[in-house]
Amino acid sequence: MFEARLVQGSLMKKFMEAIKDLVKEANWDCTGTGISLQAMDTSHVSLVSLLLRSDGFDPYRCDRNISLGINMESMAKIMKCASNDDVITIRSEDHPDNVTFVFESPNQEKVCDYEMKLMDIDSEHLGIPDTEYDAIISMPASEFQRICRDLSNIGDSVKITCNKDGVQFSAQGDTGIGKIALKQNAVIDKEDGQVSIELNDPVSLTFALRYLTFFTKATPLASTVTLSVSAKNPVAVEYRVDDIGYIRYYLAPKIEE
């Protein structure tokens, strides 16, 4: 059988919110390592990849590797039934037709049990090679969310330019141009609230704001976001989640014809 109990159940609610608008259905792959998911959006422009390590659960039991084929909208609806301070347990048999979500209140006075039918999903797994990125930008996740929101008022795309001066996000539309420049903070240690840039080569790439905005739904999961940018390659946007794992998004760039 498979059983994973997450004491901080609100994390599962947040992971759900971070993927449900991008992906309609996906396999949650459960192994001894933990729970992972990789799925593209329906237009094959972006990809989400997440890992919830087994040691982030208490307890975690996985007798046999299984894939839980899940409709995200249905699971998101069920997750909304959990309170923020509930403990969430995910449970299924070795050859599952359905999955059970159990929500326990902290004082154990209320226990909710939701059973959901599984789907047979023939998913395509993409191999993402290790890449040497031209620039790796770390910044407060809330700052990145704000930039995406503000520039969405100006245009459909954002041009991310990174050089020795810092990083610039710019958008252009019918009404004009918007530019937001961030300088690297002078700090020795990388801390929350800081902008840090690891620059190998100056780089400039354009991305659809619509998708970056979907990615920022992960903001409640982490204080910092990392953007890994490389010439003419997809950008990797990563939110590391304390004590359990990460959610990463990849987005193909827009390229001049």
């Binding site: 593209m40 094959h44 422009v45 972006s46 990809l47 395509e124 797994h125 993409l126 191999g127 993402i128 090679p129 795309s157 354009t206 659809a208 390659n233 997809p234 990849y250 987005l251 193909a252 760039p253 827009k254 390229i255 001049e256 014809e257």
Partner: peptide, 14 residues
């Protein structure tokens, strides 16, 4: 205007 690439232009299905 720049055109949007497909992710599968970059990553192969494994």
């Amino acid at each position: 205007t720049p055109i949007q690439n497909d992710l599968q232009e970059f990553y192969a299905i494994v």
